[in-house]
Design a protein around this nucleic acid. Structure first.
Length: 243
DNA sequence: CCCTGATTCGC
DNA sequence: GCGAATCAGG
């Protein structure tokens, strides 16, 4: 196998997404993990958290990123292999999208309060000992960046607070509910599970992907970490096509 | 042992 | 340029 532009592209993409060399090699096929590493280096792609590369001498990073190579999930959750070979040039499974910015992390599970929801979830009676606001920068794709010390995903799963019927009210009539999902409509969540207006995007998908073209653009971000983002890197899913 | 990425070096 | 062999840390 030779390094065609396509394969190089894929290598760059996957490498930037934090896939291991082995995973990339398997995905590309016909190459060994050594080949992938070698190529990555020749391309100038470089050193993601490497287990062997000790960090700098002397001053260690205050909040070390913790390599954790095994199953630990770097930003893009890469499902471990052990799967049927994927013929399609698909990009792993959808990383957890960031449907709505949620500036206030949920300290403790808010009580369901089944009675009269006064301020719904707006009221946060729990007074954390340190109510320091958390400032987060917004990445190029619109995602929230983590602070160096932050451990949790910037997009907490938003625990369901109550169960709602699929379509309880008229204003949900045209919203796509969970029960209506199929592989032809965009599954991008809008709102949060458990909230009354939680629904899914529902427009036609980008063929071969779980989301529409627009949300694919959010879900599948080409490598951010590298400095230059200017020349829009070829989207893993083939780029926006209006259909 | 397994895994990882880095590096070397013959091709 | 390529990648197997090797190195070295987790």
């Amino acid at each position: 196998m030779s390094w065609t532009d396509e394969r190089i592209d894929k290598l760059k993409s996957l490498w930037g997404q934090g896939h291991t060399a082995s995973q990339i090699a398997e995905e590309l096929g016909g190459v060994s993990r050594n080949a992938v590493i070698g190529k990555a280096h020749r391309l100038g792609l470089e050193s993601r958290p490497s287990p062997v590369k000790g960090n700098d001498t002397a001053a260690e990073a205050p909040a070390a990123p913790a390599p954790a190579p095994k199953e630990a999930a770097p930003p893009p959750p890469a499902p471990k292999a052990a799967e049927a070979p994927k013929p399609r040039p698909v990009v792993a499974e959808a990383p957890r999208p960031a449907p709505a910015p949620r500036p206030a992390p949920i300290a403790a599970a808010p009580a369901p309060a089944p009675a009269a929801a006064t301020g719904s979830d707006a009221d946060a009676p729990v007074v954390p000992s340190t109510p320091q606001p958390v400032y987060r920068s917004i990445g190029p794709g619109g995602f929230q960046r983590q602070q160096p010390g932050e451990q949790q995903s910037p997009i907490p799963p938003a625990p369901p607070r109550r169960l709602v019927p699929a379509k309880p009210s008229a204003d949900m009539a045209d919203k796509t509910s969970l029960l209506e999902l199929n592989d032809r409509i965009c599954k991008w969540p809008l709102g949060h599970p458990g909230e009354p207006d939680f629904h899914f995007c529902g427009v036609q998908v980008n063929p071969g992907f779980p989301y529409c073209v627009q949300h694919c653009g959010q879900a599948y971000q080409a490598q951010m970490p590298r400095r230059d983002r200017r020349p829009p890197p070829p989207m893993p899913y083939g780029g926006p096509r209006v259909r």
